[in-house]
Amino acid sequence: MVLSMSMSAQSKMMKQETKMVGGAEMYSTKNIIENAVNSKDHTTLVAAVKAADLVDALSSEGPFTVFAPTNSAFSKLPAGTVDTLLMPENKMMLQSILKYHVASGNWSAEDIMKAIKKGNGTAEIKTLSGGTLTAWMKGKHVYVKDENGNSAQVTIADVNQSNGVIHVIDAVLLPKS
């Protein structure tokens, strides 16, 4: 009897630790890459991370906060942009763009909202590419803006990973060129 209660409690805990992203459960016991490869909404991002040779970096201990654009976010870019970025000769540019979506540390949505409040409506987040994202709120939604003025809404927040957290966003953010 105790064993079945324990298993039930474990099952409940596992349910609490997962979120559905792209039709797949994301487990907090897996790292960013191990989870991202299962999301049908992030196949373009995963292909870009592989092409940029960033798989090992995003599989490492971290912690990292990733603002993860969906496939539809990538499709909003001008025609041919993704194909061009995936070319081996554009690897450095692709790395820069991808690192612009990653910050050091584990920034939960609550942490970001507290920083926004403390910053009187905005919070600056330094990225691994050396650039800055600006976060703000519109109603109950968190948005991030790149240095060019392009904005993305966080559509799924706090997808916890063993080496950080993912926030799914609806646009690709670009560093200042």
Score class of each variant (00 low, 15 high):
1 M>E: 02
1 M>N: 11
4 S>P: 11
6 S>I: 02
6 S>Y: 07
6 S>P: 03
8 S>G: 00
12 K>Y: 11
13 M>F: 13
13 M>P: 10
15 K>S: 04
15 K>Q: 10
16 Q>I: 15
17 E>A: 14
18 T>Y: 08
19 K>N: 11
27 Y>L: 09
28 S>M: 08
28 S>P: 12
29 T>Q: 10
30 K>H: 08
32 I>P: 00
33 I>D: 04
34 E>Y: 00
35 N>L: 11
38 N>D: 14
38 N>P: 08
41 D>C: 01
41 D>Y: 05
41 D>K: 11
43 T>H: 15
44 T>L: 13
46 V>K: 04
49 V>H: 04
49 V>I: 12
50 K>T: 10
51 A>F: 07
52 A>V: 15
53 D>G: 08
53 D>Y: 14
55 V>Y: 11
56 D>S: 01
56 D>M: 03
59 S>A: 03
61 E>F: 01
62 G>L: 10
63 P>K: 02
63 P>M: 01
65 T>E: 04
65 T>F: 14
68 A>L: 03
69 P>E: 02
71 N>H: 05
71 N>Q: 05
71 N>R: 09
72 S>E: 06
72 S>L: 06
74 F>N: 02
74 F>I: 09
77 L>Y: 11
79 A>H: 02
81 T>M: 05
82 V>H: 05
85 L>F: 15
85 L>H: 12
85 L>P: 06
86 L>T: 11
88 P>C: 03
90 N>R: 05
91 K>H: 07
92 M>I: 10
93 M>H: 12
94 L>K: 13
95 Q>W: 15
97 I>C: 00
97 I>T: 08
97 I>M: 09
98 L>T: 15
99 K>P: 01
99 K>Y: 06
100 Y>K: 00
101 H>I: 12
101 H>D: 14
103 A>I: 14
106 N>W: 06
108 S>Q: 13
108 S>I: 15
112 I>A: 01
112 I>N: 00
113 M>Y: 04
114 K>G: 08
115 A>S: 12
119 G>T: 09
119 G>E: 06
121 G>A: 01
125 I>M: 05
129 S>C: 09
129 S>H: 09
130 G>K: 07
133 L>A: 14
134 T>S: 08
135 A>L: 13
137 M>H: 07
137 M>D: 07
139 G>C: 03
141 H>Q: 15
141 H>I: 14
142 V>M: 09
142 V>K: 04
144 V>E: 13
145 K>R: 11
148 N>Q: 14
148 N>I: 12
148 N>T: 13
153 Q>H: 01
153 Q>Y: 03
154 V>M: 00
155 T>C: 02
158 D>N: 13
159 V>L: 02
160 N>E: 07
161 Q>L: 07
161 Q>N: 06
162 S>V: 06
164 G>L: 00
165 V>Y: 05
168 V>D: 01
169 I>T: 05
170 D>M: 06
172 V>M: 11
174 L>Y: 05
175 P>H: 07
175 P>L: 01
177 S>D: 05
